[in-house]
């Protein structure tokens, strides 16, 4: 596993994977993709990194507390549902801003929800892989 080719490849591929995962996350509303798929793809290079360099090295490099990611993802998703209550609409009614952002589209609560899912999935996959490879 631990060959020069793989070591170098993972360094180059990691940012690509991450960018692609964010792309998938935002395109999800109109084309195949979305938070869950995006999150899985974002977690993959880190998983490979842990396979090659060992979990400790990965933790040192990315400095993320996976439990915080999981909690943060849940918090973002849940609070996206709360926004509508302030507007007098039932819990989890979708709301959109009335302006467009380039690439991004109309910002609204569904995408906020999906971002939460994305972060949560990244957190869970990393938590499991890092823990498994740590032992």
């Amino acid at each position: 596993m631990n060959t020069l080719i793989v070591r170098t490849a993972i360094k180059i591929l990691t940012p690509l994977f991450l960018i692609f995962s964010v792309y998938l996350l935002f395109r999800g509303h109109n084309e195949p993709g979305g938070g869950f798929i995006g999150g899985l793809i974002a977690a993959m290079p880190l998983t490979f990194h842990a396979m090659i360099y060992g979990a400790r090295e990965t933790k040192k490099m990315f400095k993320i507390n996976t439990m915080v990611l999981i909690a943060l993802g849940l918090l973002i998703s849940a609070s996206s549902g709360l926004v509508s209550i302030f507007e007098g609409q039932p819990f989890m009614s979708s709301l959109w801003a009335d302006f467009y952002l380039p690439i991004f589209g109309k910002p609204g609560t569904p995408i906020m929800f999906d971002i939460g899912v994305y972060i949560l999935v990244v957190g869970i996959v990393l938590r499991i892989t890092l823990n498994l490879s740590e032992e």
Partner: peptide, 12 residues
């Protein structure tokens, strides 16, 4: 406001 029905069902 999305074209991907699966995703819209999931997040909305």
């Amino acid at each position: 406001k999305g074209k991907n029905a699966v995703n819209v069902i999931l997040v909305d």
